[in-house]
Amino acid sequence: ALDLLSVTPLQACGEVVLRIHHHLLRKNSSNTQGITKVYAHAQALAQCHEWLGRNLPEAVRISVSSNAEAARLAAESGDESVAAIAGQTAAELYCLTKVADSIEDEPNNTTRFLVLGHQATTPTGRDKTSLVVSTPNKAGAVSALLKPFTESGISMTKFESRPSRSGLWDYLFFIDIEGHKDDAKVQAALAALEERASFVKVIGSYPMAVL
């Protein structure tokens, strides 16, 4: 998804933050007795690590491509020792029984989604701007990238690096800042950033999500 954000012609025009709840699901039985394998996406397994350690310490944890796939496997395998970690919709879709609900270790577990479209948004007074930036691989380059935001008093809410596909040891930096790209101080910071970076793309500005 991050690789695609750097090249898509679409603009980020909104964000949605959803509370995520993981449930332990299996076919027919409503208890944990006899469960020897638990399927889930790797991230879900990590987010439920402590619960699994307490309640199913001997069960083998098997990573699959998604929690939906985990639910499908639990429903279609014919093996009632198999359980899955997935959400309520997957339980209903695959007719699985909920053995335990909200087994995530962090009760405030959330996932953020960007809304992409062709339209630009106007400032609301409570906005974010998402950027993707690259810089030559040299000492102090990252510090130089961040300086325009520091000097303008702009807060960053995200900073994430990912290897670039264009060359060895080149990185793209995905940055979220507070403010709209049409705000005067954000415009000034972006102008200074473009003088320092080898690549700058504004993915979009959008209203901050309300959980």
Rank of each mutant, 00 (worst) to 15 (best):
H23G: 03
A42T: 10
A139L: 13
W51D: 11
E104S: 13
E151F: 03
G117L: 01
N28R: 15
D176T: 08
S161I: 04
K185A: 06
I175F: 07
T122K: 07
V115I: 15
E80L: 11
E69Y: 10
P136V: 02
R162A: 06
D183H: 05
A42N: 10
L172S: 07
A141N: 02
Q43V: 15
K37A: 12
R165L: 09
Q43F: 13
D101P: 10
L114W: 10
R162D: 00
S166A: 11
A59L: 11
R61L: 12
R19N: 12
L25S: 02
I154L: 07
T89H: 13
V7D: 01
A46F: 11
P57V: 05
A189K: 02
S102T: 15
Y39N: 09
E195S: 04
A83E: 07
I35T: 07
S134N: 02
L2V: 01
H49T: 12
P148F: 00
A12S: 00
C13A: 02
R126A: 14
E151M: 02
P207Y: 01
P57S: 08
I103D: 10
E58D: 11
S66Y: 09
K185L: 09
N55H: 15
E15S: 14
W51Q: 07
N108V: 10
L45M: 12
T89Y: 09
V202H: 03
I203P: 00
A209N: 00
L24A: 03
A184V: 14
K181D: 04
H21G: 12
L10Y: 10
L96T: 00
K185W: 01
G117S: 03
G167S: 05
I154R: 06
A91D: 07
K27M: 12
S205Y: 03
Q11F: 08
A40G: 11
A74Q: 09
S205A: 04
G179Q: 01
L2A: 05
L190G: 04
N109S: 14
R165A: 08
L168F: 13
V115E: 03
A42H: 14
G204H: 00
T124K: 05
L5E: 05
E50V: 11
Q119V: 05
L52D: 05
W169D: 11
Y94P: 00
E178S: 05
I154H: 05
N28V: 13
S102W: 11
I177P: 04
V7W: 01
A139H: 08
L25F: 12
R19G: 14
S134R: 06
A59D: 06
Y171S: 04
I154Y: 06
T111Y: 03
V17T: 14
I62P: 01
R54C: 15
R196I: 10
S77M: 08
G153W: 04
E80T: 15
Q43S: 13
K201M: 03
A84C: 08
L10G: 00
T135P: 02
R72A: 12
L116K: 00
L193D: 01
S152I: 00
N31S: 13
V64D: 02
K27E: 13
F174G: 06
V202P: 02
F199A: 12
L131A: 00
L52R: 07
A144G: 14
G87T: 05
L25E: 09
F174Y: 15
K37H: 15
A209H: 04
S77Q: 08
V132S: 01
